[in-house]
Design a binder for these strands. Structure first.
Lengths: 378, 378
DNA sequence: CTCTCTGGTGCAAACGATTGTGCCAATTGC
DNA sequence: GCAATTGGCACAATCGTTTGCACCAGAGAG
């Protein structure tokens, strides 16, 4: 290991192996290794090793116009849902020598635009967008420029992008079915923003389920959040409860909205779950330790990330290929926030005390909705 | 706005303005603008505008050996503490045209090394390390190479790096004082890893406070976590409670450990806070909604990020200057997890009012006590 | 009227890699 | 034994910028 001020360059390696830099380059690159003789390849590799040569990614990017970097846009990194997803993404990408540039946009289109442009300028090889709205100029632009893009968690019909997300309608149907099985009939919904696929699909799932059970839904039973935030959850929860005396259960558009809703319960002196049951969506980390532990719809976070990575790698690799729409199956997680309707004693809820029950609050019953995991393709 | 397949390059701008590319470069760069005449500068700027010219950061990096990029190493992105910090960091950096590369290391030195090298290869202009251990070869290397580095949340004495962190000892002293004021005397501590400044300082704060109140601390009262994780919190909580019948309060090394400890409470049938009070450290998001809401020590997360950014920008800008050690003041946040010692009614837990027995743990530990758990490093 | 400055530009060489093209030998085929 | 093929390598251009240096015109000084 020779020491020098400046890191070894390809010329250095070439010189050490007494070949031309071009030859050294070919010898070192897997794709072109077969263009040089066995013997020189060995000599070059050995020299590179000895000098501790590390190719300069910047120079390489400049020449090849690819960076082995992908841009990942996250709507809200403060939402604990995303870290595990990102982790899956990074792990999978790393296996293929890619690194992820994380950018959070706070749901702000201007900010998203900025980050997106920044990343394009840095020659990212593709994008994973968890920020997609149903129509967005970023998607238009990406389509036109034929950028490799994968949508994650959210979808956007009409764009030629692969996507991986949860079967939202199915998840919400399971949630509603669960509440109905507990005797609830007056069920409200805090809908996520309707320009986001998850907001739309979950609302649709809610309305479908109710309708198919012949449970009427009037306007006061659905309020629309403008963002998937605690603050909006608080506001919508307040509105829903104040406009609707008889509500006994709430389906929230996601966990953040549900948690926000907890605040509304506190404010209005509504006890959860005795007075009102609530169920969320996402099963984000720590949600099982809330007061009360939130019933919710789970999907495999980490895998969402790895699958998104897979789809993007496919796209980057082949350039073409079929557009794949991948759904992961949701799973209903029943915890303490949903109980049978009507006057009742809730023995265990109150009790941090009831620890003799074998099932600690953190342990939930998992009801699988679908067989087998989602699969690629088709 | 001229449309072409490929984005406008500096040559294009130069051609459009009928000057040499070099001149165009000078005209466009604030630092060298005064080298060209007013008139040409205007012409070039106008042409650049018209062509929608965006300088290619890759090419620029190659030439200037700086990337306007900083590497940020986070020990665990799943910890909700970090997103707000990172956000502060990014916001402040963005104001100065820098972007942050986030890398999470999972507390794994190998992974940290990998990410670090990757980032160096990409010519980041500096590092913000939230992963520092008291001695690490990465810090050694950064020192030797004279890299601009700022330590965030953690410190490491003996290295010439600026840092911003919390006054951990003061925070823990406040926590202990709070517990003592509630009548607790048998107080345990779940110590963070002792090769990390926070673990060490908080333990020191704990021991100091106890000692200064003439409260003896024997070995069974302190257990050592090997990581700041839920799993370790669970394990240590279990060990602490099993080895110590009379414990009435726990000071956890951070919030994650405290939450893990909640799991141990459930397992062992210990009620919190009736039987045992617990206090954490960090006041991470959502911790106020746990069951029970966790008392903890808060510090301003976002500001930790912005201050780290400030320090790094200083360092990058001037290259030299004094090394600054910045502490943010902690603040005690009292919530539901800490109550006065002894038999008591916890009012809002209806139906459990008769639970006043001071915690005779169902399981009497026959397991001999073990002193400090294995520690990292040295 | 010549000489010396000095703004203002152009020229060309970097930065560190990849890659199309062409040359030289050695091998093969007849 | 000679022509055609081909494997292996070197040459040089290129990616898009920045920057040291040289050059040139005009201004001011003597």
């Amino acid at each position: 290991m020779a020491l020098s001020d400046r890191p070894a360059t390809l010329r250095d390696v070439a010189a050490a192996a007494r070949v031309h830099p071009a030859t050294a380059s070919r010898a070192l690159n897997p794709g072109t290794r077969l263009l040089v003789s066995e013997e020189t390849a060995r000599r070059v590799t050995e020299a590179a090793e000895r000098l501790g040569y590390r190719p300069n990614p910047v120079a390489r990017s400049l020449r090849t116009r690819r960076s082995h970097t992908v841009g990942v846009l996250i709507p809200d990194l403060n939402n604990p849902l995303f870290p595990p997803i990102v982790r899956g993404l990074e792990d999978r990408l790393a296996e293929h020598g890619y690194v992820a540039l994380i950018g959070n946009t706070d749901g702000d289109p201007a900010r998203e635009r900025m980050v997106f442009d920044q990343m394009r300028a840095r020659l990212v090889d593709g994008f994973v967008l968890a920020t997609a709205t149903l129509h967005s100029d970023i998607l238009d632009e990406a389509t036109e420029a034929d950028l490799p893009v994968v949508l994650m968690n959210r979808t956007a019909e009409g764009y030629p992008f692969s996507s991986v997300s949860v079967d939202n309608e199915q998840g919400v149907r399971a949630a509603v079915a669960h509440l109905i099985s507990l005797g609830h009939t007056r069920i409200g919904h805090i809908a996520g923003p309707q320009d986001i696929s998850t907001g739309l699909a979950r609302l649709r799932g809610f309305l479908d389920s109710m309708r198919s059970r012949n449970l009427p839904v009037d306007d006061s039973q659905v309020v629309y959040a403008t963002a998937l935030s605690l603050a909006e959850g608080l506001r919508c929860g307040r509105e829903l409860l104040e406009g609707n005396d008889e509500l006994t259960a709430i389906v929230a558009g996601n966990d953040m909205l549900a948690v926000g809703c907890y605040g509304a319960f506190d404010e209005l002196g509504v006890r959860c779950p005795q007075d009102v049951s609530i169920i969320g969506f996402n099963d984000m980390p720590f949600i099982d330790r809330l007061r009360p532990p939130l019933s919710t719809v789970r999907f495999p976070h980490y895998q969402l990330g790895t699958e998104a990575a897979n789809l993007l790698l496919e796209r980057i690799g082949t350039g073409g290929g079929p557009v794949k729409i991948l759904y992961l199956a949701p799973e209903l997680i029943v915890r303490g926030s949903t109980v049978p309707v009507g006057p009742q004693v809730v023995p265990d809820l109150a009790g941090e005390g009831d620890a003799r029950e074998p099932a600690a609050p953190a342990v939930a019953s998992a009801v699988p909705l679908r067989r087998g995991q989602a699969r690629h393709g088709r």
